[in-house]
Design a protein around this nucleic acid. Sequence first.
DNA 1: GCACGGTGCGGTACCGGTTCCGTACCAGGA
DNA 2: TCCTGGTACGGAACCGGTACCGCACCGTGC
Lengths: 340, 340
Amino acid sequence: MAKVTRDDVARLAGTSTAVVSYVINNGPRPVAPATRERVQAAIKELGYRPDRVAQAMASRRTELIGLIVPDARQPFFGEMAHAVEQAAAERGKMVLVGNSDYVAEREVHYLRAFLGMRVSGLILVSHALNDNAAAEIDAWDARVVLLHERPEAIDDVAVVTDDIGGAQLAVRHLLEHGHPYVACLGGVAETPLVGDPVSDHVEGWRRAMQEARIPTEGRLFEAPYNRYDAYQVALELLAGPHRPPAIFCSTDDQAIGVLRAARELRIEVPEELAVAGFDDVKEAALTDPPLTTVATDRTAMARAAVDLVLDDGLRVPGSRRERVKLFPSRLVVRRSCGCR
Amino acid sequence: MAKVTRDDVARLAGTSTAVVSYVINNGPRPVAPATRERVQAAIKELGYRPDRVAQAMASRRTELIGLIVPDARQPFFGEMAHAVEQAAAERGKMVLVGNSDYVAEREVHYLRAFLGMRVSGLILVSHALNDNAAAEIDAWDARVVLLHERPEAIDDVAVVTDDIGGAQLAVRHLLEHGHPYVACLGGVAETPLVGDPVSDHVEGWRRAMQEARIPTEGRLFEAPYNRYDAYQVALELLAGPHRPPAIFCSTDDQAIGVLRAARELRIEVPEELAVAGFDDVKEAALTDPPLTTVATDRTAMARAAVDLVLDDGLRVPGSRRERVKLFPSRLVVRRSCGCR
DNA sequence: GCACGGTGCGGTACCGGTTCCGTACCAGGA
DNA sequence: TCCTGGTACGGAACCGGTACCGCACCGTGC
């Protein structure tokens, strides 16, 4: 069976192809109701589906948004990607997801691939935005918004959360339980990442410690941002001679690894080790003990990112448009910190 | 900065646009080395990137594979999607992932969207293939392969694993530990799904029980295929008056929920409750206790699916082409079953 | 009764590539 | 010298839509 094209529809409806086009996109010119109906009947009868590629070609637009994340298998990114898809779907757009696996070449690869597919915008939960890439993005005139990523350049459009403040909240809370100090499990920065929100979590820890006049030296440890590597690192740290009384992890996924290591070593959480994370992934409520963490409103952030990318700025009451949208983060107290 | 097109390159290189095309795709006609070099220099100088949309339009092909999964946030599907991406990348293709969230309309939505984008093939870890959809797929002449999905129609192309046999392996193993019976946590089938591999896991359980002449009545429980819902169901089941001595879960994600519920209820695994799952997701090695489960070779399966979708059949030694590729599944013994 | 403005639609140029067809050019053989 | 065959490239049709331009037809106002 050959593919049905607009020509077939036009022929059956007895109109020109232009009218078919006007009917399927409701514009740009009006169509008389009777004609419209004939066309719609023909579309239905033939089972016509417009060819997206041809539409994109002709209109120089698409209904696509490209999303680049480090690794969608990690709960935080998976949930974020899902939220973006939902938000995009609400506005009739589809999202294309690319996993960079934390390697810069793959980020650029996806960025180029998405641009070549004429996405109308890009949302980056990633670090691909160097000057070089920016010029290319510009040439294809796509819009970019950084999500969960601190903007570096003055004209970056971004949706961020209060990472430093959120981390401070968590660390202060841990401190209030009377621990002499709180250790921190930060990320491994093989390639120093600019604008990395997770490193802001470490900064928040540092500030909270400083407020309390507690030294931070030798209390910062590092592991990749996932549970498996964090588990390995924690195994060593917790079995060592300087086991901390409390630990703040820069992501929940790491915290999950720490919890697992503690169990392995028969260290009771929170009695012998208090733990807090960051992100409030869905699983944080189902760990044992449930994880105290810092939550951000992913749904709202995803929606804001989609709005920014599609509308070039967020509508705000004062009729101006904002280019950076900051969301608050809040502490979610469960049991791993020692409460209850 | 305006976008660089093939015309700009041709002008700078002093050739026709056709030659530019021949150079960038190495064919279909040969180009003299000197000319080729001039064109390549021009491409580099201008930073030219071919427009994928226009290429797709003109050539009626793309380098895209559409992948539809129920929910990539679930570890099994996430890992499978990742494996497919890897396999596709090895062959220079990109994959588009759609999450159906287990609803049929969304499957069809993505299917149509992907066809409209002229994907060269579709890999379904899903149930979208009804006759209606098949006709559409045919019209757009894309190829489809079912992955991890039992084929229903005689001409379906599929990559499957031995679900029934694998489940039998796990249940037999549980039985060998001397339990009087093994309960089963299957899936909820609101919409009866044809070809659902997970329901084959239940079938495997049934057969293993029958082999051992143990009745199955009242020993099959149901929960959606994820840890959160399984946790809720398990909480009730394990706290009830008929707590089973052992339970086989149709997915690892469910098993993780069961493990969590057992801990909550202070039921020791495996001493008071033996547990086994299916899939061998990465996390299965990191549960407490580590989960005994059934593994399949996701990497090989993904690669086979990509080969099938791109080559219309798998090359086999005997020069024939197979249309259904069956992979074995094997038992991975860890500690949740009671071993060691 | 005629000029005029508005509405509804057909014709068609164009988006940026691919690829067929044909031609110009050159070398070699008759 | 002329014809033949092969190679290297230019020209242009085409993919399936979008959207501009302009014409035909109608109703209205003077």
